[in-house]
Design a protein around this nucleic acid. Sequence first.
DNA 1: GTAATAGTGTCTTTCAGACAGTATGAC
DNA 2: GTCATACTGTCTGAAAGACACTATTAC
Lengths: 335, 335
Amino acid sequence: MTTRHSERTSTASGVVIDLSAAIVTVTDEEPKILLVRPADMAPRPGLPFGPFDPTGHRTLEEGLRAWVEEQTALHLGYVEQLYTFGDRFRDPKERAGGPRPVSVGYLALVRQTALKDAGDSIWGDWYRYFPWEDWRSGAPTIIDSLIAPALTEWVDSATSKPDRNRRRERVNLAFSLGGAAWDNERVLDRYELLYEVGLVFEASFDAGADPSDKLAGTQTHTGAALTKDHRRILATAMGRLRAKIKYRPVIFELMAPTFTLLQLQRAVEALSGGRLHKQNFRRLVAHEGLVEPTGHISGQTGGRPAELFRFRREVVHERPAPGVRVAVQVSKRAG
Amino acid sequence: MTTRHSERTSTASGVVIDLSAAIVTVTDEEPKILLVRPADMAPRPGLPFGPFDPTGHRTLEEGLRAWVEEQTALHLGYVEQLYTFGDRFRDPKERAGGPRPVSVGYLALVRQTALKDAGDSIWGDWYRYFPWEDWRSGAPTIIDSLIAPALTEWVDSATSKPDRNRRRERVNLAFSLGGAAWDNERVLDRYELLYEVGLVFEASFDAGADPSDKLAGTQTHTGAALTKDHRRILATAMGRLRAKIKYRPVIFELMAPTFTLLQLQRAVEALSGGRLHKQNFRRLVAHEGLVEPTGHISGQTGGRPAELFRFRREVVHERPAPGVRVAVQVSKRAG
DNA sequence: GTAATAGTGTCTTTCAGACAGTATGAC
DNA sequence: GTCATACTGTCTGAAAGACACTATTAC
């Protein structure tokens, strides 16, 4: 290895950059992710992505906004760069001699919108792809029935004792099987663990085991698969978003201009994957100054009408890290 | 604009990817950043960076580790991807017809090490490049003497009232001039604001005003400049690291295997840019279970000998977000 | 002794978590 | 009336911030 700076133009020849977007919204108390059926008729849907055009795009983010708005007629509000994915063979086409595909992943938030049906875009429920992440109705059954036994077996099947300990530590950290509290931000850790253990479809597909897609959805796999490494990108987005709502008021990017406190709580719960304590939630958003009353009353709620609130923009000047810092309950149901 | 997925190989032709590293250590209570003098004899130092080799490197991070270890003989412990930088003209060579340079930036932490002198690498004090970020001895004088007046003038010079309000809001958020508390994580916000206002050398250089570098270090510019956009990458690294030490035990990546509590405190202070309350710091690291006593006593301390501690690895299983969550004092000196 | 750092104890305030109870609508 | 949701008040314990004090070294 004698590579030096001066040689880099030659080594970079087989690389292409694209920009992929995890576009998230919340409708009817469910978090949704925008998915497209790729042009080449791949069997599984994927995140929208497009080329980075170095001549037309002044910045990476500008490039992302441009082709997303063009393809989906969606105007992106909040956009944040997530991570750059460049693992070998992240796109199976690379095996057939294609260039190394590097993708800069973005997280974007949009308000509930009627999606133009022109393209092949659909809003997918993100827990369809991560059923083990939704604890709103208690512990997901798939963990007890499928994931935990498989992980235990994986730990026990390690050949050496230090190896077994490392595996156990990883399992305990990711899935809290050792009695620790569930950490709703470790979405990527959990996905990567399931990938390594072979519990997600993409793992066997990437290994070349079953290119005909037959195994997708069988009981040996958990959650629905996306094309290429897009489920990994989505996992990154989920983890980042779950972390971010705790210290930045990004949740309001997903809300209508006015909303009831319960609507706000349900949106946070949908993203966080757990229940919040209602009274404390109300106190928190009021006390932190995140919202202010509009004086208007909501329509039908199923009970007593609720007051409508709006986001208080001034909060970003008053508090160093304004967000919804309420503890997420993942074991029992809360009112 | 009719770009579609299928055309991306053609649009990506003029792009090269490199990997840049903000390699941080703390020695003698000062945070340091590894800098190299580029091979093409550019007048300003920069972060080490190297090409991404799509044929040789299985992952981006593996590529980074490989050439860093090769070039600097440093073994990187903690490595974290930061951000991908792709703004047009981020490398001035692009103006002369060069390809669009996209750089994936990494943050790496290494223990205090005797750096092999083989290359042209040096450890630079990172506050030399960000003098307004060091509040350990009280408010930096450069803010009162230079930055605050210039920012005020910039706010007042806006042509429309809404524009003036937007500028004031940005200044208040970044530099807390409106009475808010200083947020030590907003390193990038502050650098980008200074860049836009023209208070850092790179701004005038990038605009083509003074390619002969003569203005570097004059009183109209704040802090020392780095080559290309490397100061922006460093700002991203500083902000991320300051945030991270609060909820992950990354500080121990920079410490010797055993250390006194004051050494640990000084390291945190060096990175955070402020003072910590000594007694509370001790209580925190003990109470959170971050450290455990070794039973051994340190040597020369200048006073009573101190007990040596070590990092308690088990803490990552016990607490959801173990880190040094002590409030950083930026106004007055603390014991 | 002084100077400097190490380490303990405790008071106060803030705030998160939990629970009890009242208010107002639909039916 | 019941049921469902909206909203208020209060208790408790954890933890952060601040302060006072003692301990052990070098000089």
